[in-house]
Every structure is written in C-alpha cells, then in structure tokens.
Design a protein around this nucleic acid. Structure first.
Lengths: 344, 344
DNA sequence: CAATAAAATGAAAACGTTTTCAGTAATTTA
DNA sequence: TAAATTACTGAAAACGTTTTCATTTTATTG
C-alpha cells in the first residue's frame, strides 16, 4: 500500500503540468467540450487515467452550481412500493451520472420540512418527494421552487394547485377496478376501509369505489366506509364493528395491503370464510399478498414505471429548464392493473 | 412569491456586510468556534436567520475537505433486513448532521466497484458497505482506505483480513440456535439449504448448523446440505431432490427466509404437512414469515441494533481518526435471537 | 499568398467557505 | 499605570474547478 507521507490527490493541475497544457484545456477535455482537439483530448484522458484522477465534485459544484445530486424524500423506504420506485430511480439516475440522497420523513411533517431545508442547503439539483399523509401545506418546498430547483412529487402529491410537476398512479381507476371486480363476482354489500381524505391517494381510491357502486346501482352503506389511519389495529377494529352488526358485508375493498392483510387475519380468526363468505381486494401488490392464504387480490401500481417516468421527466426538466411550462401543467398518471387472486 | 430577477442566495459576505464584520468572524460564529464574543455570535445568528442564510456545503466542503456526507452501498434496499438497517442509520446520522447517499449494487460486483469509485470522487466522509455475495476481492475499496476515509462493512463482510472495521450478526449462533431448536423438538434428520460459501454469512450459519448436529451426535446427510444461490427456484429444486429419495428429512434449516418460504410452499403443494411431517426454520425474520401459514420460525437479526452500532462506530472513527487501532482490530458482533413459530 | 474565418488553447477571475497569521481591544498582573 | 496576557476580530490566501475573454494556431477562401 501507499506509504507516502501525503497520498495527495491528483488534480486537474497535475494533469496540466504533466502535459504542459493549461488547466482550462484539461477541464474542457474532461467534460468533452466540443472545442478541444481529438488528439489532445485522448492524451488528457489517458493521463487522467494514469494519474488516477477523480473530479472533485465540490470544487466543480461550487463553480458550476451543479451538484449532480438529486434529493429524495420518502415516508419510509421499507414500504414495498417505495423501495421499488427508489430502486428504479437510483438505477436510472446512475446511468445519467447523478447521485441520489435518500431521506426518510418517517411520515412526519416536521421531519419532511427539516429534510427539505437540509437538501436545499446541500444544493441538490432537483428534489423528488413522496409526501407525508399529513402534508397539506407545501410552503416548505417554496424555497426550492423559487430558486428554480425542479421539485417532482409522486404518489402522494399536492391537492391544491402547486407550481410543481407530479406523477401519480391512477388511484381512481384502481379503486374502480377493485370494486367493479368484486361486483362482477356477485357481491352486493361491499365495504371499504380507506385512509384519511387529506391525501389524494384515498380521495381518489374512494371516488373510484363510489363510482363503481353507482354505475352498478348498488347502495353504499356509509357505516361500512371507513376513513382512518391504515394500521393493523384500526383495520381489525373496523372489521369487528362491521361483523358485529346484524347485516354483514359480502366484500371488502381495502385501500392498502396492510389493511387487507389485517382484515383477512381477522376473518380467519372469526370463522369468516374468505372468499366464500367474504371477498376481498387490497392495494399495492405487496409481496405478502401473494404469500398469505388465501392469496389476496390487489392492485398493481407498477413502481418501476413510476420510477422510470420520474427520471424521464426530471432529466427533461434539468436539461430544458423550466421553460417548458406544459410539463408542469399536466400531471403524469401511471396506469394500474387488477391482480386477481384467491381472495375474490 | 419572489419575483425578483435574481433570487440571489445570501452568503456569508452578505451577513458580514450587514453587520460590518469580516467574513471570518461570521464563519467562526456559524461553526460556533470558541473565540467569538457571545454577543456578536448572537447578532450573527440572528442576522443569518433573518437573511435566510444556508451554508453552501460545496464551498465549505471544498475548503475544509469535509462533506458531512456518508456513502452506503447495499445489495438491495428492498431486502427487509437492509431496509431496516438503513432506516436506523439514516435517522441516527441525521441527528449528527450527516447526509447519507444510498446506492444499490444490485448484488453485482461490477456495480459495487463502480459505486465505490463514484462515492470516492463525491468525497464522502465515510463509507458503509454490505458487500455483494460475489465480493471476495476488496481492492476497489483500497482507494478510500488509503486516503484515510473510514470504511465500515456490515452483514456481508470481508473474509480475509482487511484493514477496515466490520459489524456483523452472530451468524454462527444463529445457525446453531435454529438447528438446536429443531433438534429439541425431536427432529433427527435435519436438512440444510444454504448459500454459497464465498460469503461469511453462509459459512457461519452452516458452521453453526454442523456444530449443533455434532453436539447432539446426529449424523449429517451431506446430500441434504445444499450450497447454492438462495432463490425461490433453487429451493424448490432442492426440496424435490430431497423428497424424491427413499429417506426424507424431518426438518429443514433454511439459511434465509426466501428459501424457507419457497420450501414451505413446496411442502404444502406436495402434501408434506408442516410442522407434523417436516419442521422448519428460516433466517432474518422477514415480515412474510409471520404472515404465511403455518408461520415460520426464524432468526431475528436486530437490524436496528446493527444500524445503531454502525453509526456509533462511525462517529467514533470520524471524531478520533484512525489512531484507535483497537477499533479496527475487533469485529463487532450483534446478537441474534430465535423466534419460535408454528412451523416448528 | 495574403486575408479572413475557424479552431484550439491559455490567463485569470470567479464560486463561498475556512483557516492561518497577524493585529487590535479588553483584561489581568505587577 | 505600564506590561503582559488574553479575548476577539480582520486580511488574505487557500481549496479545485469552470468559464469568459483574449490570444495563438490552423484551415479556408478569393
């Protein structure tokens, strides 16, 4: 191993000196700027490799005001959907030569605000955000937006018109598909456990549910429509309320898989046979839904497509700046699909 | 919103000018350097807040050679264990004022090498790595180590003596616990599906298995010990080999949960009743293991403890430099626990 | 072959901090 | 009160790039 006193980094100046060229030329060659002779460029590249040169991102960033780093704020990376989206984003960004700083808000608004500040002062070139469920005010992103840093929202996106790009799944269609499917299998008394309506996700999924019911002229029992935090416990609670009554549902559309799984467990424990007595669908295609028995029907959100689209839009934004107003105007909607399994 | 032509960033110079002080003093105050008068410091802090000042990390990093950013290379963030570890790392680093750049190698050695290069040139202050299963040569990290950048390995760690800190689960004990448990429930013909022995993980888990068998004077049928890539398909293949023979195992210790789940599915499909005819344990406590029926016994690796320890060691390394040779000498081993469930 | 245009290179000034060294103000000591 | 400390502040030089503008070299044209 290197035993020199100073394992000094080789800089652009070292290359310049070795080749009797100016640092300016070296810089240009390294960024393959058009106006540098082919031969000199090759020489420079060769020498750079030989000296083990690595660009100092900080110096570069300081001067050019570009970090080649993108920030990401997400509620929790352990949520399957997000993990998949992140993976895709990361891999595609990598191809474009960008780094990704991933931050978790733990679904806490204060954390989200703090992270936005930090990423701002880290001078990320762009920011990708999946909001907290509580986020209804977006002023903590203003700083970024005002500074001309592209901010892209996905999945959980602003409800009010906000001057940023966003990419979302077709939650309305998802709700509609899930509910229609249950109706087609012959169910008439369809319950729905959903999240708080502060989030676009649940507004849309619920709207899809209502639309499907309406189209098939089925009445909605409002006692069977829940808007609550989608935890395991809340799901069991809702189930016990519904199945404690005189009339019980014959189907359940759960707005996420955690709830569906909890409901299924409750059913199994209480002798409610799924799918005979109760048919069910979840939402997100969490890996657990295919493992549990009976396996759960659910909605596939195509996290890979979401991730791809995010990067695609992002690169466009970074290249062409914000001139392209059209880009910001229209939200991108990623299609969803129903996955039929044993539970329905 | 700000409609000025230039929403210019306020710098340290703006604060200096506003307060008729020198930039040096501002810098000191902002880094609460001891030698600055309490009153001036307060003035400066107040003015900084008023001007909405945010330190420019790149300028700061360029000058001080510190980025306050830590790199992380991990095979896949969607693996439950890693997702949990990362979450803990991120949250604790955040408290210390550090950012985390998370990268996925997709379990590809070439990717790992490339990422190490990139993170090096991004000048991360430290690097945390969970290696690829194929990684047996670690020279791509030399560059970092030689430059004095702390490199910490966890989970999948170098086998050969390598000049870096590492933190691992007690895989030997995990293998031993799982196997002993199966033996205690009365099993005698215990099979073992494990990963390739190029990784410390499987070397140790297998060693634990062998030790337990030996201590209880049970013979090991080497046809029932598999070392293969731990995929769904391979697991089913192994099962079909074992259960195609004249004598069949009465227990299986699978070296990860994916394999255990696949094996359990195979058993269910082929009328092998778990746990009556076959008892099983997995490894990692993936959320799916508690959902599947029968629920799978497994080994809890305490990802939160792993994450905490990583950051603890890292901070020590960053503060005290590498002088503390003792730190590097001894590997940190995080305890594991057996979780008993219905499958055994 | 001169005149001009185009291509390739260089000199030097940024970018926003931190830090060394020196200097001034405030405090203590003799 | 002068001398010697100590506490605080400032001037200026870094850090390693990129970029503007000027300059030199090379190619093209009439």
């Amino acid at each position: 191993m290197n035993k020199d006193k100073k394992p000094q980094e080789n800089t652009i100046l070292d290359i310049a000196e070795a080749l009797k060229l100016s640092p300016a030329t070296i810089s240009r060659a390294l960024n393959n700027h058009p106006h540098v002779k082919e031969k000199t460029k090759n020489d420079i590249l060769k020498m750079a490799a030989q000296l083990g040169y690595r660009r100092n991102q900080m110096a570069s960033g300081l001067r050019s005001n570009k970090t080649h780093t993108v920030g990401l704020i997400v509620p929790r990376i352990s949520m399957f959907f997000h993990a998949e989206v992140i993976t895709t984003i990361q891999n595609s960004l990598h191809k474009h030569g960008y780094n990704l700083i991933i931050c978790q808000s733990n679904d806490l608004l204060t954390m989200e605000q703090e992270l936005a500040e930090i990423l701002y002062s880290s001078r990320v070139d762009a920011l990708i955000v999946a909001c907290t469920l509580q986020t209804t005010d977006f002023s903590h992103f203003n700083r970024l937006v005002d500074s001309g840093i592209p901010v892209i929202f996905y999945d959980r996106v602003p409800l009010d018109p906000y001057n940023a790009t966003f990419i979302k799944g077709d939650d309305f269609r998802g709700g509609y598909l899930a509910t229609s499917h249950l109706i087609e299998t012959g169910c008439k008394r369809i319950a729905h456990i959903s999240g708080k309506l502060t989030s676009n996700l649940y507004q849309d999924r619920t709207a899809g549910y209502r639309k499907a019911m309406e189209l098939h002229q089925l009445p909605i029992n409002e006692d069977w429509v829940f808007h609550q935090e989608l935890t395991h416990e809340n799901a069991r609670e809702a189930m016990s309320i519904m199945f404690g009554g005189p009339v019980v549902p014959d189907a359940l559309f759960a707005a996420n898989d955690v709830t569906a799984i909890a409901a299924l467990e409750f059913a199994k424990e209480n002798g409610i046979v799924v799918p005979d007595a109760l048919k069910m669908t979840g939402y997100s295609n969490d890996p657990r839904t295919s493992i549990i028995s009976p396996s759960l029907s659910t909605i596939e959100q195509h996290p890979d497509l979401v991730g791809k689209k995010i990067v695609e839009v992002l690169m466009d934004l970074l290249k062409n700046g914000h001139e392209n107003a059209e880009l910001k105007a229209k939200p991108y909607v990623i299609p969803v699909d129903l996955i039929r399994r044993m539970s329905s």
